[in-house]
């Protein structure tokens, strides 16, 4: 089975995992940190490049592993809408994967705290142990997160490694509270589209209308009546 993995929760990420096990990815670079508002311009060109590198046509893709966030709402929807269009074109399956699960899947440490910058001084995150999700995806301010970790994990907290752009953004807050953050240059801070592909192998395909971002936050709207 040929898998295409795409993620737009943070930077634009695309990878192909060919049926023969060969992987085609482009490692994340430091240049990809910061606000990401260019998914519309970057995503399809990245997908086209990965397919060309893998020697595949669009019609050769059997399943699309799509990162459903959490992350910037507009960016996530560009990724999901792109996946819907690609899947519709040739009947490929859509397999949703949490971008946090992908962040937690690779790198050192058994107890991992993937964190994605949620803006407004908050973090999106979840807790994983050996790939098993222990905490539901949440949005929280760093100080609230730190006190939850201390209350609920106690001694265990020393085994924990925080990863993701959110952990870099609030590195000082986390480290001064005794939490370990993966080294700044580590590849484990970027969501890996290849990790999405690997996780997607055990994910059931969904219909386009069931492909919904992991929003975590409610929309800002005020009812007038």
């Amino acid at each position: 089975m040929n898998l295409l993995g795409i993620d737009t929760a943070t930077a634009t990420r695309a990878a192909v995992l060919r049926g023969d096990g060969q992987a085609f990815d482009r490692p994340a670079s430091q240049a990809e940190s910061g606000p990401h508002r260019d998914h519309a311009a970057k995503l399809l060109p990245a997908i086209a490049s990965r397919l060309a590198e893998a020697g595949l046509d669009y019609g050769d893709i059997d399943a699309i592993a799509v990162g459903i966030g959490p992350g910037g709402f507009t960016g996530l929807r560009i990724g999901l809408a792109t996946a819907i269009g690609l899947a519709r074109a040739h009947g490929a399956e859509l397999r949703p994967v949490s971008s946090l699960a992908a962040l937690a899947a690779e790198g050192e440490g058994a107890l991992r705290l993937p964190l994605i910058d949620a803006r407004r001084g908050e973090l999106f995150g979840a807790l994983y142990e050996d790939g098993i999700q222990r905490w539901e995806a949440f949005a929280a301010a760093p100080d609230a997160l730190v006190s939850r970790v201390q209350t609920e994990l106690g001694e265990e907290a020393r085994r924990l490694v925080a990863v993701g752009d959110g952990s870099l953004r609030f590195r000082e807050d986390l480290e001064s509270a005794g939490l370990a953050v993966a080294a700044p240059g580590s590849m484990s801070h970027a969501v890996s589209a290849l990790a999405l592909c690997r996780l997607a192998v055990s994910v059931e395909p969904v219909s386009p209308e069931a492909l919904i971002p992991l929003y975590v936050r409610e929309p800002d709207a005020i009812a007038t009546r």
Partner: peptide, 20 residues
Amino acid sequence: LIGALLIGLSTAKALAAARQ
């Protein structure tokens, strides 16, 4: 609305690309 536009445009681009 930019967020709304990007849904239709992204789907359309992907459909067109995949069908060349």
